[in-house]
Design a binder for these strands. Structure first.
Lengths: 215, 215
DNA sequence: CCTTTTGTGTACCGTTCGGTACAAATTGCT
DNA sequence: AGCAATTTGTACCGAACGGTACACAAAAGG
């Protein structure tokens, strides 16, 4: 009793991928269901049968985005030997993603619904929550650095996470405005120069008197 | 021959101000003309008679935003005694604006149309151009710092401007997510810690060997 | 073969969109 | 007063919106 009835004539994942690209490019409000159906190569009833409604389709598309595009970011954030190197590499991974000429500019989670009408506030909040999760990922990685000894114990992980999350969001806007990979990597470079100060505000005024916080 | 015909029964500027607030909150796509008319306290024919169409109304609203909210930013950017202090103060002015609980979160020019359908691409490009102007303002202030001697001659003003413009955009997203003034000011503080490196990449690895660049 | 189950395409639903026709109302000018 | 110019409110326009009814097609199970 595995498959009853007429089989689906399209690849659900492929269709979802195309929907994701369209939402990413045009935003939630800027993408109509008719446009989606056309881009997905199906008719609207097929779309609704497979994805329930526009809003759920969007959530599925965001989940796919996180799996397809967010994976390398999270990997890089875990893989780096120190919190500093991990955060830097994670930002560089995203810089390359946001500026990829084969893809819509910037991060889908930032650009696709920043301001919406109150009817779609759930969508905006959903993305806002996802952004908070990204910030939390930065924070946890820095806290891990404290636990592992490569970040000073008195570090303000939450504050540093907010800083790097903001940098990442700014990179998305910049990418939307046509900034290239080089420009975004320069921004990352600048942000990483503030590491010591951001991680230990008040202790390190500026610059780093000593990098050997490691081990 | 100054005023013929029936006089307008509403204050055009007040109405535009209310439209600006609504666009700022909900974005271009998320704001309908009916909502606008209601918020402005007028009927649609009055709206169209006074502002031509939705798109032109939006442009007028953005211009008002720049006059009302962008003024203090530009002033601070010019007023600071050094480029460094001016950029820092300008960012702090915007941090307070973006987190003002009396106003919609973030910068209108960033949040109100990042991703739209192709029909409204002109709106997106208009805002993108305005963001470029803000970046140019940063660049010119830093170049002025070079001319006045408070910034080293070999400084990369364009790169630094891109960095601080990105920070500013990131602050808008963060403000939309509910970040308060304190959080945004901490981000500014972090960004300013990178000043020397950002202004002279490759020369100053990190930190500032000397702050007495002033005069 | 026949029923059940599910997907497909057409053609449509009510609502909202941006925008306007039109007649009444209110002013300045002569 | 009469005319020209302009705004106002009502009521409406065609188009696009998100979503669906329905008849038909294609598969599995009996």
């Amino acid at each position: 009793m595995v498959e009853r009835g007429r089989p689906r004539a399209f690849d659900r994942n492929e269709a979802l991928h195309r929907a994701m690209r369209l939402f990413w490019t045009r935003g939630y409000d800027g993408t109509s269901v008719s446009d989606l159906a056309e881009a997905m190569g199906i008719n609207k009833p097929s779309l609704y049968a497979a994805f329930q409604c526009k809003e759920k389709l969007f959530y599925d598309a965001v989940a796919l985005y996180e799996r397809e595009e967010g994976g390398k970011f999270l990997e890089a954030l875990q893989a780096g030997p120190t919190a500093r190197e991990a955060v830097g590499e994670a930002l560089r991974v995203n810089a390359r993603l946001f500026a990829d000429p084969q893809k819509p500019g910037g991060c889908m989670i930032v650009v696709s619904a920043l301001a919406t009408d109150p009817d779609h506030d759930a969508v905006r909040c959903f993305l806002s929550g996802n952004r908070s999760e990204a910030e939390a990922a930065y924070r946890k990685r820095i806290e891990r650095g404290v636990a592992e000894g490569d970040v000073p114990a008195q570090a303000d992980a939450a504050r540093a996470a907010a800083f790097y999350a903001a940098i990442q969001a700014g990179m998305s806007v910049h990418a939307r405005d046509g900034a290239g990979e080089r420009s975004l990597l320069e921004i990352v470079d600048g942000a990483m120069a503030a590491w010591d100060h951001v991680v230990m505000p008040g202790i390190v005024d500026n610059g780093r008197p000593d990098e050997t916080g490691r081990s």
